[in-house]
């Protein structure tokens, strides 16, 4: 069962978006996040959502997968909505929609609630477009290369990426091992499934202790093996995976630039805030 796990959210198909340079994808995602914050009206959000929907079509990723990414955040979304709904602070005359007992809902409050929850949802959807179409190893490559200028101030960009890729390499190995230890402990009468939360957490101790011990041993072995293969940090190192910018990356940049242009126009057209 552990043989075919996919890490993170990565949706492994081949597409135009998948083939884009991870560096470009990371930067464009940051640009999209900025765009989300620039939006001033629901019209702007509609434009953004349409853009992302089109991108997901280009990426061969079902759009519902991106919506699914919102599920873990549903409580935060609901909380954002409710807080904004009830505690809208705005001076002056306000149109009251509902007034019951101590609860007052104003039109502005409703607007604000919808607006901020939409903002949060869109932020998540934008980033999941990147994580769904970029494999973790590509992401770590992209991050390493983007951060490498910081090496001047001794930021360990290479070490960070190496750690990420080793972690990715060992996740399946450690999962397999956890499975094995769990079975061994169950064979000796350990019970991982019954009892309340605290009891179950305690039951994890005989699983975690051997797992940690073995992880440390593996780390020692691996360090020795890496040294034996002449590893001596990022200096003077060449790379098998080379990232090259293509004209497709240029197209993607142009598309996002146009989108941001449209959003800025929309912002100018709606100077007074957030009409619903």
């Amino acid at each position: 069962m552990l043989k075919n796990i996919t890490l993170g959210q990565y949706y492994p198909v081949d597409s135009w978006v998948h083939r884009l340079d991870p560096r470009v994808k990371i930067l464009l995602t940051i640009a999209l996040i900025v765009a989300v914050f620039l939006v001033r009206s629901m019209v702007g959000y509609a434009i953004l959502l349409t853009f992302i929907f089109l991108a997901s079509c280009l990426a061969n990723v079902p759009f519902r997968l991106m919506i699914k990414g919102l599920k873990p955040l549903r409580f935060i979304l609901i909380l954002t909505f409710l807080l904004n709904l009830f505690f809208q602070s705005g001076g002056g005359e306000q149109e009251i929609l509902v007034h019951w007992w101590i609860i007052t809902i104003t039109r502005a409050g409703l607007r604000q609630a919808v607006f901020f929850s939409a903002r949060l949802a869109l932020l998540v959807i934008c980033t999941s477009l990147m994580t769904l179409t970029t494999s973790p190893i590509q992401l770590s490559d992209g991050i390493e290369l983007l951060l490498s200028p910081l090496k001047i101030i001794h930021f360990p960009a290479h070490e960070l990426a190496m750690m990420m890729s080793i972690a990715l390499r060992f996740i399946p190995t450690l999962l397999e091992e956890a499975d094995k230890i769990m079975k061994a402990q169950m064979a000796r009468g350990a019970d991982f499934e019954s009892g309340n939360l605290i009891k179950r957490a305690k039951a994890m101790v005989p699983l975690l202790v051997p797992l940690f011990v073995s992880a440390f041993r593996r780390a020692g072995d691996l360090a020795m093996a890496m040294e034996a293969r002449c590893y001596h940090g990022g200096e003077g190192r060449t790379r098998l995976r080379v990232l090259k910018l293509t004209r497709h990356d240029l197209f993607a940049v142009i598309a996002v630039a146009l989108l941001i242009g449209v959003i800025i126009l929309e912002r100018a057209a709606m100077p007074d805030g957030w009409p619903l």
């Binding site: 190893i137 890729s165 080793i166 990715l168 390499r169 190995t173 041993r217 593996r218 072995d221 691996l222 020795m224 093996a225 890496m226 034996a228 293969r229 002449c230 590893y231 001596h232 003077g236 190192r237 060449t238 790379r239 098998l240 995976r241 080379v242």
Partner: peptide, 30 residues
């Protein structure tokens, strides 16, 4: 040198990238 535990000496997430590891360290051109 090759070691006893086959799992604890493979560094990369794909076979060919692991074979590349030593060459990358030596700075061999792509």
């Amino acid at each position: 040198m090759i070691f006893q535990n086959p799992d604890n000496q493979i560094v990369a997430t794909l076979v060919r990238e692991d074979v590349a590891f030593g060459l990358e360290n030596l700075g061999v051109p792509h």
